[in-house]
Structure formats: C-alpha cells, structure tokens
Nucleic acid binder design. Structure first.
Lengths: 200, 200
DNA sequence: GGTGCCATGTAACGCGTTACATGATTAT
DNA sequence: ATAATCATGTAACGCGTTACATGGCACC
C-alpha cells in the first residue's frame, strides 16, 4: 500500500511522469539503500491507479527528449489520499522467520537451537555496525529526516539484540516444555457454545 | 518464505496432511492472533512444494472419515531444509508507511504532521496495552515460548514509541529543511566514474 | 435436520520481483 | 562509437488474500 499511496501523494502535489516519480519516491524513503523500488513496480502501480480512476493521463510531453506520460490526480484520487492521511497506520506483526526456525529446531532436534541463536546475534551485530556507520555518514544539518530513519532502524535492531539475550537465558527452559503441537484432536461432533467439554 | 519452510520443516519431522499442517503451523507461530495462516495458502504452498520436488504425496488415508492426502519430505527437500536452518535470517527493513505519510504531509502541506504523529502515538499505546494484556494472560509454566513472542512484540512497540518522542522533538527542524526531492536534473550525457561534476 | 468440525481445494486478484525489451539524447 | 542517463514498458513468476465450492462425519 505504501507505494500506491506514496505515488498518489506525489502526484497530488503536482502532475508527474513515471521516471520522475521513481526518483521522488526513492528520495522520500531515504534512498535506494533504505528501500529500493523497481521501475517495473512504479509503472504497474501507475496502471492500477489509472484503472481505479485515481489518476489520469494528463498529457504526453516530448520537449526534445524521450516521451513522458504525465499523470494527474483525480477528485476520487484526492479523496482516497485524504482518507489515507487520516487513517492510522496498522501495526503489523513481523512474521518472524527466526522464531519459526527456532521452534522447529527445538521440536525436531535436527539442529542445535543455540547455533541458530548465535548466528542470528552475529547477524544483528553486523547489521547494527552497518547502520551506525551509515548514520554517522549523514549530515544532520541537511538530512535530519534520514537521520531519524537511521535511528529508527538502529533502535529496532537494539531491541532485537536485547530480546535475543532474554531468549538465550530462557532457552533451556523452553526446550523442557512440550512443543506447542496442535491440540490433540478433539472428539468429532458439535461442542457448541455453552458446553463445558470434559469440564474439570 | 516462512510458510514454505515452516511446512517443509513440519513435514520433515513426520509425514502429515494439509489440515494437520495448518494446525501445527498455527501452533508454532503462537496462535491465530499472532499470525493467521489461511487454509488456501497451506494448500497452494503444498502444491508448489510438490512441483519443486521437495515433498511427495505419500498416501491417501480414509480411516472412516474424510480423505487425507499425506505428504512426505524428499531427499531434495531435506537438503533445502538444512540449508535454510543454517542460513542467516535476513533483516528486512520494514518499509515504513508511517514515515512516508509523514514526509508527504510535510512536503505537501495538505495535512498537519503533528496530527499524524499524535494519531500514530495513540495507536501504538493502544497496541502496547493490548500486547501487555495478552502477555499477562499467558502462563509462563506452560507457554514460555509464546511469552517470548509477546515480549518481542512489546519491545518493538516500545522502541517505536521512544522513536516517536525523538521525532516530535525534531519535527520543527525537519520541516525547515528542504524536502528531499530528486536531485535537480543533472545534465544529460556521460558523467562517467572519475569525473568531478561541477567540482566545488 | 442443523450445527460444527474435519478435510480439500479452485479462481481471481493484489502487490512485488526478476528478467527482458526498446529507444532517444548527449558528452566524450 | 559507446557509455550513461532519461524514459517506458511487458511477461512470468512468487507469495499472500478473499471468496467461493464441495463433501463426509457425528452429535444433539
């Protein structure tokens, strides 16, 4: 959704063409290192926006160079954009692949969970180092916004590291507990709402 | 990728059928509240795994009930699974929709950035409250793993809240800076590697 | 006979990616 | 010439979602 509304918002500021939108979007998200958007996605998203009637092809320029298809926002697009601005950003769980790996390693016994944990920690420290280097390369006098982005990424990695420490301390206890397997096949039929199944 | 390898890992433990895998996967990720996997995704992923030769249809049971298609892992599947276990989990940037909203609001002047910031903060506090309530409802004696999951989510939200505080403190300064627009159209042609373009 | 679980799918769509393909302009 | 940027797209795939569709079993 971010790309869709990002483009819509940029077109809402002033009519633009695809290539320009690609550059503007990349600039807004803090450069390619932070979020690389492929041209293909820009153009397919623009087509979808057009099909949905949120933008229209305004004109095609040639100004002594390659063709440029200029898109402009429609009243419907403006309405959707305002909705988006005012609606809260949903906080999505991060579908943690690491946790699945961990649990499967514990459950199957095929791999040492500590090995996975240490690998992850090494990875996070490497990431933290890189993020810090990147942050230090920024000039706060001219790119405060990017500095904030870098700061956010760093804070998340630091949180992950602290969490890994907690996990390590409790790993042995977790291993002792029965692996969360699906509840052992309830008897068939209709348990219904108000029924106390094998009530204690 | 998590679903793909999650299922592969579960089948690697023992042959299973789709419905069972759905239950087992849901259990491993901490229940539907944490990560709801739709049956449709299970079955389509199983088909893809089969097409890739990582699993095979082992048998079809009927045992006086509905049909069950049992899948088993292949040697190729086992090899891929081991690779997955040993490869580091890539740390993905979270494609932050909130940041885009913020930057667009600042750039366009159509919406008050503070309004968006406060809305987001309210949202995060609501989320934190819910996560905390959920955490307290867990019994550490039998679901330590889930407790760790809850803890991780809480730590992330807390980090987001601290970051929002930083952002608020600097918002006025950010607004004063020129909005990061794409670099003002470099002259055409070939700048090449070692050339100092309009060197200072 | 209805409710509800067990069990399996298909079709269409949304979003994103990789890879491929085209062509014009301009500085060297 | 050729390298590099400007500019636009298509095709195929991967992953995930929503919605739809089917049918057996068993309890009450």
């Amino acid at each position: 959704m971010s790309v869709k509304f990002g483009l819509l918002g940029l077109i809402g500021q002033k009519p633009r063409h695809g290539y320009e939108l690609h550059a503007a979007f990349t600039a807004i998200v803090g450069g390619e290192d932070n979020w690389e958007v492929k041209p293909a996605q820009i153009y397919t998203t623009l087509n979808r926006l057009k099909e949905q009637g949120l933008i229209i092809e305004e004109s095609i320029l040639q100004e002594g160079g390659p063709e440029k298809v200029i898109y402009a926002i429609t009243p419907e697009g403006l309405a959707e954009l305002e909705d988006w601005f005012l609606s809260p950003v949903s906080i999505e769980r991060q579908k943690d692949e690491f946790f699945i790996k961990m649990m499967l390693a514990i459950a199957s016994g095929q791999v040492d969970p500590y090995k996975i944990l240490y690998a992850q920690r090494g990875n996070l420290y490497r990431e933290l180092h890189q993020l810090t280097a990147n942050k230090l390369s920024l000039n706060p006098a001219e790119s405060l916004a990017y500095l904030m982005l870098a700061e956010q990424a760093i804070m998340h990695v630091e949180a992950d590291l602290r969490w890994l420490d907690m996990l390590e301390a409790r790993l042995d206890d977790i291993r002792k507990q029965p692996i969360p397997e699906p509840a052992p096949k309830k008897p068939r039929g209709r348990p219904a709402k108000g029924i106390k199944e094998d009530g204690q």
